[in-house]
Amino acid sequence: MKRISIILLTVTITLGGIVFCIACRVTYESKKFEVQQKAKDAFVKALDFEFKSRNLEKTFSFKYDGVTPLTADLPDSVCIGGKSGMHWYRLDPVKHRMNITTDINVRLLHSLTLEETPLNTDSLNEIWKEYLRRSDKYLKVALSISVLDKDGKVKVSNSSQSPWYTPSNLVFTIYIGYACEIEIMGYLHYSLWEMMYIEILFYLLLYVICVYVIYKISINVIVRMKSMRQKEVVEVPVIEVVQEMANTPIRSYVLHDNVVFYAGLQKIEKLGGGQEKLQPQSCQLLELFLKAKEHDYILTDESIMKELWGGKVINDRLHKSIGRLRSCIQKVEPSIDINRNTSTTYQLLL
């Protein structure tokens, strides 16, 4: 029983641990997606605030998901004039989808405005952080702003002084302007504990409770099944006397499915199967067990020795007789057994 308990506890803890990890993983991914979406929305508002402060005449719409369709009239290059004259720049279709607006005029307005007064990383970062606080998200944020040249290479780069940000913390990448784009990369610092410490504590408590309850229920079921197996009583009706020889009736008992004990003939027979001859002493002992039906077929050592040897204490003979009877019975029907019930009793299990 102790071995079964250890195995059962180990299995319950293992399965519970797997479910606990899966629940934490699913919750973490859900929380992570929610935080990233709020971070993107907050940055849109921060950038909108920055552009409005520059008195731009048009607003813009943020398109980060990469599903903005390429328009049929999108040119493969654009000509932009500056202090150094007119220059042609090739457009990148991928960056086109990641731009904050699909309006060509607004893009041009952004390019010209930001060329004169570039975005300030620290200032924009603080505005973004403020909008995040308004969404009840108190997380560390960082920005990296780069200006690309006509060949798409980084010409100027300005990043927040945050050593923690890495590619794994990248939340979004967007582009502003029309060719020679400004690339903005947003980073968010969060941990599993920061995002779902309440859920972790709740799942841990639920895990402990469930493991304990399942373990106790399983143990009770096993104990009950074992008890029912030991106390299982198969009706043993006395078959009508079919023959008498020398005034001695042939007493017959049904022990199990199609298994009959003929006390008068001193044999056990399985209908349609084999049979086993019993010695007189084994036959007498089996009948003693069957007559103890009201006591769940339990006999004390004292009562057995009294019937077989007149009350003399002969333990060795008793144990050998029980073993001999058990062996004969199980040759006919292995499911029938005789167990040592306590230190002083035996029980016939039908």
Rank of each mutant, 00 (worst) to 15 (best):
E276K: 03
I200S: 14
H319E: 06
M86S: 13
L139F: 14
C79A: 08
I268Q: 05
K150R: 11
V238I: 15
L271M: 13
L299M: 11
V242Y: 15
W309P: 01
R97E: 07
F20C: 04
I184N: 02
T101P: 03
T14Q: 08
A142Y: 01
L15Q: 13
V233K: 15
K153T: 07
I200F: 09
I250K: 08
K320T: 09
K226M: 06
G81T: 01
T102A: 06
N120H: 12
E232Q: 09
G323P: 02
K231H: 07
L47T: 00
S157N: 04
P237I: 01
E240I: 01
I338C: 00
L204W: 05
A292C: 12
S252K: 09
E183R: 11
I80A: 01
N339Y: 01
V223D: 15
V241Y: 05
E276V: 02
I314V: 06
I298T: 10
S146W: 02
T344W: 05
S168C: 10
G310Q: 07
L139V: 09
N315L: 12
G272N: 15
H110G: 00
K31Y: 08
T248K: 09
L349N: 01
I219H: 05
I322C: 02
V208K: 15
V223Q: 14
S123I: 12
K216C: 05
T166K: 14
L143H: 03
Y262Q: 15
F172V: 07
N341P: 00
P280S: 06
R324D: 05
L114Y: 02
V171P: 15
I184L: 06
T248S: 12
W164A: 09
L192K: 08
L74W: 02
P69L: 05
C180A: 09
E302V: 13
V233E: 12
S227A: 15
L204G: 12
I127S: 05
L143G: 03
I217C: 05
K40R: 06
I219V: 11
I145V: 12
D316H: 13
Y212F: 14
V236P: 03
Q36R: 12
S61W: 04
T101G: 03
V26G: 04
V156L: 12
S162W: 00
K312Q: 12
V223S: 11
L148S: 01
